[in-house]
Design a protein around this nucleic acid. Sequence first.
DNA 1: CTGAAAGCGCTTACAG
DNA 2: CTGAAAGCGCTTACAG
Lengths: 384, 384
Amino acid sequence: MRGKPDLAAKSKATIADVARAAGVSTATAGRVLGGYGYTSEEKKEQVLKAAQELGYRPNALARGLITGQTRTLGVVAGDIQNPFYASVLRGISNVAEANGFGLLITNSDEAQAKEVHSVELLAQKQVDGLIVTPSDTRKARHLHNLKGMGMPLVLIDRAVAGLMVDRVATDNIAAAEQAVRYLIAAGHRRIGIVAELVDETNGGLDAFLARAIAGDPIESELLYPSWQRLLGYIRAHRIEGLPVDPRLVQRAGSYSALAAQAAVPRLLTMPDPLTALFTTDGTMSEGVMRALTELKMSIPQDLSLICFDDIDWMSFHRPGITVVAQPRLAMGEAAARMLLERIRGEDYPPRTVLMPAEMIERGSVAQLDQPKAVPEHRRSGLKR
Amino acid sequence: MRGKPDLAAKSKATIADVARAAGVSTATAGRVLGGYGYTSEEKKEQVLKAAQELGYRPNALARGLITGQTRTLGVVAGDIQNPFYASVLRGISNVAEANGFGLLITNSDEAQAKEVHSVELLAQKQVDGLIVTPSDTRKARHLHNLKGMGMPLVLIDRAVAGLMVDRVATDNIAAAEQAVRYLIAAGHRRIGIVAELVDETNGGLDAFLARAIAGDPIESELLYPSWQRLLGYIRAHRIEGLPVDPRLVQRAGSYSALAAQAAVPRLLTMPDPLTALFTTDGTMSEGVMRALTELKMSIPQDLSLICFDDIDWMSFHRPGITVVAQPRLAMGEAAARMLLERIRGEDYPPRTVLMPAEMIERGSVAQLDQPKAVPEHRRSGLKR
DNA sequence: CTGAAAGCGCTTACAG
DNA sequence: CTGAAAGCGCTTACAG
């Protein structure tokens, strides 16, 4: 092929090419271009000039192969399109970028098989560390392996049984408790909850409710977020001396707005109707909102509402939806910072960072002027 | 360090290790592990067994260095947190994953300097191809360079002057025209528009309006999306024989919800008030919605509204917002597919894929029972 | 400070 | 079908 020899050369200038053009060894050229070791000012200038002319661009593959570091972080998110993950990813990206790291991103769709596949892909690409939102809090051999091989690892949102690594999450129990106590303080006594609750390892919803209502100790660390938020809901009732009616606990059973939407009619057809509703995440909130809109329920006249996580539409909605907002961006940033520390070799014991959610009051909660005190006959429910 | 010699070995088994354990050459081990060349069943089994036992994991860096391919796509998005980009990225991710490609993602925040930096990072990491949403449609030397060096490149949403590469975008002019004609058909005569319109290279808004209203030919290909959508707005007026009142065209001047919000009062304080409003993207819509909520304007009683791009809240809002929805996911998928074709070496002339937006009717447009015909004294405006 | 040489973990002609 | 050898583009001891 004739013509454009310059361009062709330009597209593939290596350190050897630069060294030759500058009249130095590849070692010297490498030292100035790579910014390591010492070089005389004179040679440095020659090399820089030659590099400029040849349009030299370092090959990160070669560098990574030899240094064992790629300056790339891997992330396994549930679904990049979901606002929760989108924000978390932006937080990770901010920190990565500030430190000169690239970001290799995959979606697991909360499916273990895809997660395993993603992790394998990222490991082969030699990422320096991994941030994952584990799809299963019990089985995660791939993550244990990774850790065993010394791969820096940070978990977001969920923990994994027996996996001692850094983790950042929202303090789900406290956040849910705060929201539900807020409703109770506003005079609500019949408060529904719509939660994903897909995992069955807790012995089923009924058994879990029985234990939680009885105040039995529950190992909450390994609970999926929706169970933790349910626990906060129950704890708020206990603290306020209000009985928990299991029929008010609606399980969507899958992580989809449709499932949440389907759960709403089940709540509204009860004899002693609820006056308030608590949803445990953005997707559940979406489904609930669709259901309420369809049923032409007015908020907060017909029903008060507090949602977990602040999705953008919640502030445009009329009335604005009162929420407990997770610090999504900050969670991503914290996770990335912790990962970078591990990559640098800092050697703390595994840290769990539980970040507080922020309650944002808007207009979706009605102040009831019913007696604040819980009627005697209901109080008894607590003792069962 | 004593102990766990197996684990240590396991974490770094190379082809040479596997070859040794299997009693074959590295070439043979490489052939079966890499899936290239021919091997006898017998040796293949030995190698596979050894690899399994050693926990061999291929090093994509070494493979990439020698093959010149990394099976990684680079993406420069505006802001991964923005629903538009989040969806586009998911589309790209779907196609990448299905083809065994990884995804290196960066944010430009629509700033040229960050974009240049991102592109450089991705190029150093030797991505096989790049998808970018260019932040500047005029100057983009980095992209021209990239193309000159043979890097496969696909543009999303915006074009770049003189850069002949594949591109996928929404057919903005047609989509906006459709929306505005819909409003006109509903009887609206005073239709406002809130658009970003940040670029000044069109000689300023007034000059642009004058040319467009006069029907002068306009090279629309290089226009930023908000200008294209404004063009659709004007074209709809022309087609329907309605004059364009420049005061109804509100320029936010920056890509922020706040700027859009500030533009709304300027529209509502006119003597001959508007009855409908058209917003040109999700961020503008957000700002406009905040303003209308604050002003306690009822939709569609006080004002009809059509928004460009279907953001999730628009379907929860009461009433639902009528929108022209961009096929965001499909755009990402199309872009990724085109890029993969280029990476495979397919050699078409540069393709521009303009995807149609879909109009979704909800409840934000009031049917006016004013005369459908445009009054005579207004028609004259067209002839100026 | 500088250069010759080895090597990171693979793949690719080239013989046999 | 298989192996010895070279090489991808860098960095890293090691001499000098």
